[in-house]
Design a protein around this nucleic acid. Sequence first.
DNA 1: GGGGGGCGGGATGTATACATTGGATGTATA
DNA 2: TATACATCCAATGTATACATCCCGCCCCCC
Lengths: 242, 242
Amino acid sequence: MSESKSTTLTKRAAYELRQRIIHGGLPGGTRLYEVALSEELQISRTPVREAMSRLAEEGLLERAPGGGFQVRAFSLRDVTDAIELRGVLEGTAARMAAEQGVDPVQMAGVWAILDRLDRCFAGDRVDFDAYSELNAQFHCALAELCQSAVILRELERVKSLPFASPSAFVLGQADAAGSHRSLVMAQAQHRALAQAIARREGARAEAIAREHARIARGNLEETFVEGAQPGGSMPGLALITR
Amino acid sequence: MSESKSTTLTKRAAYELRQRIIHGGLPGGTRLYEVALSEELQISRTPVREAMSRLAEEGLLERAPGGGFQVRAFSLRDVTDAIELRGVLEGTAARMAAEQGVDPVQMAGVWAILDRLDRCFAGDRVDFDAYSELNAQFHCALAELCQSAVILRELERVKSLPFASPSAFVLGQADAAGSHRSLVMAQAQHRALAQAIARREGARAEAIAREHARIARGNLEETFVEGAQPGGSMPGLALITR
DNA sequence: GGGGGGCGGGATGTATACATTGGATGTATA
DNA sequence: TATACATCCAATGTATACATCCCGCCCCCC
């Protein structure tokens, strides 16, 4: 091992496996064999094992009956449920934040992200990359308003499923005009949500968060029905089988 | 190793660690050292490591910054949040079940459990052990009505925290009369919840499930305020610190 | 011909030696 | 005295050999 070792081998193995899974190299249900992987990655069994264990924590793998691991398979139903669940959790976070009141500094940060999101719309053109990044930041910052480690932890878990990330909202829009309309609507919901929290309207905040996720779910369902299956607009769609 | 090895050493190590954590032998925040544990348990580092990894998946341990594990510490806030979260998830499951309709056979099973729960009340005396067991079964069967692997998975995760189990409802009642009243009320909510699902009243089902957890949360808060800290009526209370 | 038992191979489980890392400690120098 | 650097130690990371278990196959006996 005279090579570059920027990180631990465990992390390298985990990264490599994660990439393959997300990009479809290892379809759902595939059984992973320690020896085969360690030979292929030129890494001994121990870190490979450790990496698989961590990916199981992330939810990409599951422990196979009788030992070992296999790639977790997701049905379309699983995917829509995950997105709905994300909405439920974000809604709960929003409601809790509204009920208990928020730190002004944190809230200012949320508004700042919203302003920067606005700037992604130039005329009828959208800077998708910037939007996605800021959108993720917004959802993250919003959830943190609830000050609950338990809620945040579970939310992180659900969002770690690649297809349940906030950017699912973008999907399913065939033309640019449709995308633009979708994102304008999403941004309006973002502002309404922040406003509801600031005004301490818990029930309203929760309802908006849920509706927001419901639309993302609908978009993803459309995308899938139209057959844009693996590797489409979003990495991680390759995970969806059955 | 000529001894009885009914299971793998990993499972033995995990069991032993879990017991110590739940019963307070290893307080929250305690760092776990592989060598020390392996010497103490007379098991080599590898299975100990594996066991810690699994307990991290369960949520009892967390990976320490810079490697290794430590016992997860729960504040009272974490605990109440976890119970509220359980209510949110059960509420979601109930709403989904109501909206999509339920399998009659499963629903019959739920009613059967409810009848058996009724029989735990004999006059003004309650068979607590039987009640706890059946109560857990009820909550489990109810959640399964939603037919969603994703929701069930997350719900299992939250319930695996010892203090977030359904039996938290029993806590915080000083006298037998108080307990009896509590359980009668809980059972009434159980029936109302099942009825709402059967009648496909999703919103109502969700609301009842949440209220049910809210009461459990209140009971646990009382218990804690009254200072019945570690090892009290429920194992797992020892986890709560700060 | 069918069933049972033994045998072999492949997979994970386990033990342990060695490598590496990161922090604590102590010392020398400015 | 403070800072920078060398050193050491303890803890995890890694490699690898060996043990064990499970399962399928085949052969032999009934």
